[in-house]
Design a protein around this nucleic acid. Structure first.
Lengths: 198, 198
DNA sequence: TTGATTTTTTAACATTTGTAAAAGGAATCG
DNA sequence: CGATTCCTTTTACAAATGTTAAAAAATCAA
């Protein structure tokens, strides 16, 4: 446990409110989940999880923003962002057990509730409602990812940028453009050009 | 039930062998799944599922190839392919219950085992091992999709083409290039150009 | 506040990819 | 077999995006 994590009393209500939007679970199940959580406070620009380690924690963003990133030929690329009241994990490592080539970096001073994934998966046997809850959560994330493929596969960079600004104006206010560019699959220069026209 | 589907005795062994690679389920669970399956034989170039309908069937490809496709500004775009011994479904409709803008077309004379998804989801309550099986199947599909995003987000068309030819030589042998082009996120002309160099 | 650092924009040019049209090949069907 | 249709390649040109470098703007820290 680092000095950034703690087992001091945590307010789990935002997490459980989030869970409720997918599937309601019993009081006992909530207690079982609470027992495998810890709080992490990470300052701006620091890594919550570093590249090369296997993903063994699913994070709920209580406050702040995080991004999953990796390097392609030395260039920093953002795979995804997570705002308040959402989960973030490097699923390609979480579900395969392999080390991740990706890291999680924090873009503002942020608070996370970390859920130990090995312990969580153990709970599935005893609490079927927890397994169902996370099944639904990841099914929903899967759908989002499929829709993102459609966006990358056959929308122009300009279309993707405008879709982003309309759907999530928060992106522009809170995330540096250099990170948004690679998220959209383009360079920072291209993004500047798109923003300049009009 | 169309004339292309039947409830005549089906050989489920390829399906259950496939399931076993994810999670072993009981004999009773297998029987319960078999009870909600039907066989579909679809001739080359016909649609297995047409655009506009809600996805209520998960298909296992026993023989042949299928692709999920849609139209973007009048252009036919392939989202994904499925070969023998894999599942295919329009998940963005399956998990949301909304009508799909996508269809499933068959590229060779093909045989499918169709699993009714509403009936399958009903089985989850009675057979937790079935829920776990499909949880793992879709987690795995989710991981594939995340990896595909990485490919589309920051690999050039040429890199994507060469990766495809190396990983799945079957693609080139069995799938028309016009479908492969849009799957890679490029035009047919661009693909021809990439193939021509060297 | 000031100076240093980081982020964003701009410019010039190279490369990749798209578009449209035509030609060549391959497959299909009577 | 021949004719038709569909698939793939090629060509020429246009548009989009990448690369590199520098300038401008914004942010950060002392």
């Amino acid at each position: 446990m680092t000095d950034q994590s703690s087992h001091f009393p945590i307010d789990y209500s935002p997490l459980f409110d989030y869970f409720d939007t997918f599937h309601r679970i019993s009081k006992e199940s909530k207690e079982a989940i609470a027992a495998i959580c810890s709080l992490s406070k990470i300052p701006k620009n620091k890594d919550l999880q570093s590249i090369g380690h296997t993903c063994r924690t699913i994070y709920f963003v209580k406050k702040g923003i995080a991004r999953i990133y990796y390097y392609k030929d030395g260039t920093d690329i953002t795979e995804s962002f997570a705002f308040e009241n959402s989960l973030i994990a490097r699923v390609e490592s979480l579900f395969t057990g392999k080390p991740s080539r990706k890291g999680i970096q924090v873009l503002e001073d942020s608070d996370f509730i970390g859920i130990s994934s090995p312990l969580l998966f153990d709970l599935y046997d005893q609490f079927p409602d927890i397994e169902r809850l996370f099944r639904k959560i990841f099914e929903s994330a899967y759908v989002e990812t499929v829709n993102r493929i459609e966006s990358l596969q056959f929308h122009s960079a300009e279309e993707r940028y405008h879709a982003l600004t309309q759907e999530s104006p928060d992106f522009l206010k809170r995330i540096p453009l250099k990170y948004i560019a690679s998220y959209l699959g383009i360079t920072q220069v291209s993004l500047s050009r798109i923003r300049a026209q009009r």
